[in-house]
Nucleic acid binder design. Structure first.
Lengths: 248, 248
DNA sequence: TGTAAAAATTGATCTGGGTTATGGCCGCCG
DNA sequence: CGGCGGCCATAACCCAGATCAATTTTTACA
C-alpha cells in the first residue's frame, strides 16, 4: 500500500465533471491544484466503513468499487457501483456520519482529497459546487431507478436494465468499446446488487445467453442485442442525465 | 384551484431547513422574501410529470405527496413520501428533465417557487445552498435504505422499518404525537412503496396487529411497541441524519 | 340517510426466486 | 505438481409473496 502525492490523478476528476458540466479554464486549474494522495488497494478492501466520520473524500482512478451495507446475519446489499472518475463518498462533505460502507470490488487505485481543500474549492468556485451537487443528484436518480427494478421488475428485466446502465456509464467516461465493456465482478456481487441470490443470477445469465442477448467472457460483457436488451427492460437513459450542461 | 401569493407559506420551509441546518437571521429573512404561489390540490393529482422540464419547485404545506414512476402495463413504484416542509423536486434546479412524477396522495396545499428566485437565493447565500444540498443528500440516504429493504428484508421487516422511518420524520417537523402519527394513505399506496401487492400488505398488517406492534385506526398509525418494531426491522435512525448541524 | 364507489379483508392456489447441495474448473501457492 | 479456495454451474426441492376471486366495511356525497 504505497502512499504518494499525485496531482496527475486529478485529471480523472476533471474529465468526470466535464461529462456532466462545463468548466472554465480557471475552474479546471483549481481542481488540478487540489492535493491528492494515491493508494493501490486489494480487491474486497474497505475504503470507508459504516459509522465512520471521514475527513477526506476518495476519487476512484482505476478498478471498480461499490457502496454496500450489511444487515442481519451477514446479508449484503450493494447500493451502487463506482468506476474511474467517481467520488462515491462526496456526500460526506455535508453528511458527517457514513450510513453505509465503501469497498473495492477489484484491485483499485484511489486518490484521497481532504474535505478542507474541497470545501475551500467549492466556496471559491460556485460552478464547481453546482457540478458536484449535480453529480450527487444523478447518483440519487440511479438509486431511484434501482428501487424501481427491485420493486417492480422481474429478475430478468432488472438485470437487463442494470447491464444497459453500466454500459452507458462506462461509455460516458470512455471505458466501453462497441457494445462491450468490462464487468470485473463476480455473480455474488451482481446478486447483492440486484437483491437476488447468486444461484438465481446464474440462472438468469444462462437464459440471457441462450437468447443471445449477451455473452460474458472472462470479465467482459458483450451486448449482442442492445435493442432487445433495452426493450425487455424498458430502459430509458434519461435518468442518467448524461447530456453535458452548463452548471449555472 | 385558487391561486394566491402567500409569503406565510415560507415559514414552513424555514422550519424544515432549521431541522437540518443552522440559519442566520439574514438567511432566514432571505427565504421569507421568496415569492410563492399557493394552491390546494385534490388527492391523486399530479404536480409534476415524468419528462417535464419544470421552471419552479414545489413546497408541500399540508397533506402528503409522493414521487412515483409507472412502468410496464401500469405497475407503479412509489419512490418516496413527502410531508409539510418538503421540496420534493428540489433536484430540478440542477437536473432539468424529470425522470419520475410527483403527485398528491391526500388533499394537499402546495406552494410554487420559481427556479430563478431559488437560484438567486443560493447564489447569494452559500449557507442556504449547503442546507439545500444537504437536504437532497438525506433524500438519497433514504433511497439507499429503501433499496436495502427491498433487496434484503422480508415484507414484515421492510414494513416495520418504513413505519419507524415515517414516525421519526413526522416527529422531526412536529407532526407526530407520542408514538402515534398520521398515515393518510391507502394499502395500495403502501404496497407500491414497499414493492408488494395490496393483498400481501393487508396480511402483513394483520400480523403486526396480532402481535400488538401497531394499530391502524382511520388514518392514524399508533405504534404500540416501538422497541419491538425497531428491533425486528433492525432500524437505525442514523441514515435520517436528523441532528441539527451548522451548514458550513 | 341511501347508495355507490373505494378500500379493506380473506381464501385458494400458483410461481418466481430462495435454499441446499454437489461437482467442475482454474489459478495460486507451497 | 498437487491440493486448496474462489468462482461458476446445475439439480431438486421449498416457500414468501403473487395472483385470482369474492365478500365486507368504510367513506363520500346526493
Amino acid at each position: 500500500m504505497p502512499s504518494t502525492s499525485d496531482t496527475h490523478a486529478l485529471t480523472m476528476l476533471v474529465r468526470k465533471l466535464e461529462s456532466i458540466a462545463i468548466l472554465s479554464d480557471e475552474e479546471r486549474q483549481a481542481i488540478l491544484n487540489l492535493p491528492a494522495k494515491t493508494r493501490v488497494l486489494q480487491p474486497g478492501q474497505d475504503i470507508v466503513h459504516d459509522g465512520d466520520k471521514p475527513s477526506q473524500c476518495c476519487l476512484i482512478l482505476k478498478g471498480w468499487a461499490c457502496r454496500y451495507k450489511i444487515i442481519g446475519e451477514g446479508k449484503r446489499q450493494i447500493l451502487s457501483f463506482h468506476i474511474a472518475g467517481d467520488v462515491p463518498d462526496l456526500q460526506s462533505l455535508h453528511i458527517h456520519t457514513m450510513d453505509h460502507s465503501l469497498a473495492t470490488l477489484t484491485e483499485a487505485t484511489v486518490a484521497f482529497i481532504p474535505h478542507d481543500n474541497l470545501r475551500e474549492l467549492i466556496a471559491q468556485h460556485p460552478g464547481i459546487a453546482a457540478a458536484f451537487w449535480r453529480d450527487t443528484l444523478v447518483d440519487a436518480a440511479i438509486f431511484r431507478e434501482w428501487l424501481i427494478g427491485m420493486g417492480r421488475r422481474s429478475a430478468y428485466e432488472h438485470m437487463a436494465h442494470l447491464f444497459c446502465e453500466l454500459y452507458l456509464k462506462l461509455q460516458a467516461v470512455g471505458l466501453a468499446g462497441s457494445y462491450c465493456c468490462p464487468l470485473p465482478i463476480t455473480q455474488v456481487d451482481l446478486a447483492d446488487a440486484l437483491g437476488l441470490t447468486n444461484v438465481h443470477v446464474n440462472r438468469v445469465l444462462k437464459q440471457m445467453r441462450e437468447q443471445s442477448l449477451i455473452t460474458l467472457r472472462g470479465h467482459t460483457l458483450v451486448i449482442e442485442a442492445w435493442d432487445e436488451l433495452s426493450q425487455v427492460s424498458e430502459f430509458d437513459p434519461t435518468y442518467l442525465h448524461l447530456e453535458k450542461r452548463a452548471a449555472a
